[in-house]
Amino acid sequence: MVKKNKDIEVRMEETKKNIQGNTYEVTELYIGKKKIGEILAYGPKEFQSFMDNEELGTSKTLDLAIESIIRQWNLHE
């Protein structure tokens, strides 16, 4: 019997965070009510991904940063 893949809706919320006196734009990713990760926009081509306060790395685009969080989430679920 083959399992059928389910579509999962990922919701994004934009917010701002103060880190060491600097304000950064943060994109939070949610599946349902559970926050699965955050992306800090350090610059136009520097997006830092975090999952459960663990740094996942830097991406050149927001889309790549989102993809890295979703991949990590899939590995842990």
Rank of each mutant, 00 (worst) to 15 (best):
S59C: 07
F47A: 09
E9G: 00
K45M: 08
E67H: 06
Y30P: 03
E14N: 13
E46V: 05
K6A: 15
I8L: 11
Q72T: 08
G21E: 05
K34L: 12
I39P: 04
M12K: 09
K17N: 07
K34H: 14
S59K: 10
I31Q: 02
G43F: 07
N5Q: 08
F47E: 09
K6E: 15
I36D: 11
Q72E: 14
S68C: 07
K3P: 06
T58F: 02
Y30G: 06
I69K: 01
D52R: 13
E25F: 07
Y42Q: 13
T15A: 15
L56M: 02
P44N: 03
S49R: 11
K3A: 08
I70S: 01
M51L: 09
M51F: 01
G32F: 05
L40D: 00
E13D: 12
G32M: 04
G57C: 04
G57V: 00
V10F: 09
F47T: 05
S49Y: 05
T61C: 10
L40C: 01
Y24N: 05
K6G: 13
D52Y: 14
T61Q: 04
N22K: 13
I70E: 00
D63E: 14
Y42M: 09
K17Y: 04
K16Y: 14
I31L: 03
V2Y: 11
V10Y: 07
T58I: 07
W73A: 12
V2P: 11
F50A: 10
E38T: 14
Q20L: 04
S59A: 13
S68I: 07
Q72H: 12
Y42L: 15
I66Q: 12
L29P: 08
G21H: 04
L62G: 12
L29N: 10
R11C: 02
K17G: 00
L75D: 03
R71F: 01
K60A: 11
S59H: 11
N22G: 05
K34N: 12
E28H: 04
E38G: 11
S49K: 14
K60S: 08
E25R: 15
D63Y: 07
Q48E: 14
V26S: 02
P44M: 04
K6W: 02
K35W: 01
S68A: 10
Q72P: 02
K6N: 06
K60L: 09
D52E: 15
I8P: 06
W73N: 08
K6D: 13
E77N: 15
E9I: 10
I66A: 00
L56F: 06
G57K: 03
M51T: 01
G37V: 09
G21A: 11
G43A: 06
Y42H: 14
K6L: 15
K3N: 05
T58Y: 02
Q48D: 13
K34R: 14
E38M: 14
E25A: 08
E25N: 15
A41D: 02
N5Y: 09
